[in-house]
Design a protein around this nucleic acid. Sequence first.
DNA 1: TCAGTCGTAT
Length: 602
Amino acid sequence: MAFVGVLEILADSDLTRAAYAVMERVLALGLHGILDLLIQGYANSAATIKLLDLLLWVYTRHSMAERSLSTFYRMVRSGFFPDVKNCNRVLRLLRDKRQWVQVRDVFEEMRNVGILPTVVTYNTMLDSFFKEDNAQDALELLGKMLNKGFSFNDVTYNVLINGYSKMGEFEEAKRWVSKMWTSGLQVTAFTYNPLIYGYCSKGWMHEALHFRDEMVRRGFLPPLPLYNILIDGLCKKGWVTLAREKFCEMGEMNLVPDIVTYNSLIYGYCRVGDLREAFLLVDDLRVQGLAPTLITYNTLIDGLCRTGELEEGKEVKDHMVESGFQPDVFHHTILVNGSCKMGKLAMAKEFFNEMLWIGLQPDGFAYTTRIVGELQLGSASEAFKLREEMIARGITPDTVSYNVQIDGLCKMGNIDEAYNLLLKMVKDGVPPDCVTCSCIIHALCQKGYLSKAWAMYDNMISSGLSPSVITYTILIHAYANRGDLESAFTFFSEMRESDVLPNEITYNALINGFCGKDLELAYEYFIEMQKRGLSPNKYTYTLLINEHCNRGDWNEALRLYGEMHEKGVQPDSCAQSVLFKRFGEEHKDHAISYLENVVLGN
DNA sequence: TCAGTCGTAT
């Protein structure tokens, strides 16, 4: 036990750094028994407390939560009270490991034995409470902190701003930002980070952009990650033009985009189906001296799959593998999904099996994707087998997994079974969401049980779930289609009051309902949707053209058909057959080419 | 700070 003697000398002579190095060496050798030796009084008592503290420090530095905890408790119970700095280190470690109960216990123990907390202790505890989603306890602690005469430092403010932003309590977060300004503490660019990050993660991009502006007005240069978050948030909303503007703005601010910036923007263009621009960006990033990553490739392949270009996606995959990238679970999930969406179940299976073959463990996303394919293109029993296999592999079904299953049952017409599964999911502690309810509402509407659907809607509201644009559209469509325009309008109004924005499909559902009854009102919605920046699509035109044809108003039908062309909306066979439904089958081709000539003025 | 799964319409 010579090392204890060495440590004792070092501790006595205040050679902390040297003692730390020796202690690290001792533990690297696995000699954890030093704790017992010290507690039993192997060294002199002045050195013992220093060495125990050192031990605790080393354990926390190496993120050894169990050892840190047991050392802490052995120490306090033997009357060796650790330095508060080491207690703070233990708290921080436990917080980072999300061991909430242990964080609270250690804090409580500190109080019991009389170790006085510092502002760092309070900041750590506040942060821990927020990360635990317990703002109430954070608030109480804040009160205690003030009562004891502690004043907030910059970290306190940042913890509060961060905590409230993550919870989506932006008003409260903003209040602390302005308090921080008036407190005279140093506000930095990073003070705004959590707020902007919070807004982006909730998709509130206007607010996020507003705070970028405020930041710049206050004279801060937004850091690169902040621009990346903004561009990512804009792209996720599909606002790729605005994202591009921000991308250009970066240059004006002397910020150099990195691969994350490019990947986000590429994602944005892929999501709006502009693969040309996405590939141009890949060229551009290469010119800038950057190189595509696995994420770049996966994003492009997903983009191609979504536009139906599965073969091109496979080409990119080959190119990716040739460039030395190892396909991962994301990659395979994308291709499984792409194959299913093209109706190629056998190919989806191949991609899924390839993933297993190369030794990758499919996660919940991969299984869910595969199960959806099986439900839509294959068999329910195969889907069930896969679900069992997923559970056997230790993946517990989440909300999406249940939703897929529930929707599958609904589509097979088993609403009762779907409802039972909803009850089971609640029992299993998996929270149903808006999609769960929408699936069942949709099924009820399709079966004609409209009042049951309405009851389900009331049910979801009283459970605290917010209906989405899809939920409203399902109900509006069902009621409008049945001719109950008043009820359809009720949902439309409720939608407005809840600040849920209608989309093209919502308007189509309304227009569909009003066409047969009140064409004037149908046109009002047709105008309104365009005022709101929504472009009528082929369904919108088809609905209106159909109605005019039914009324024999051939001129207006033709005018709409022309407008459709002008706006670049490609009519499909459905739009054309609606227009010519009075024509005999054998004349249609002539009629269509005649019409194209008239309309296009050729 | 970046990628993958579920629900709407003629």
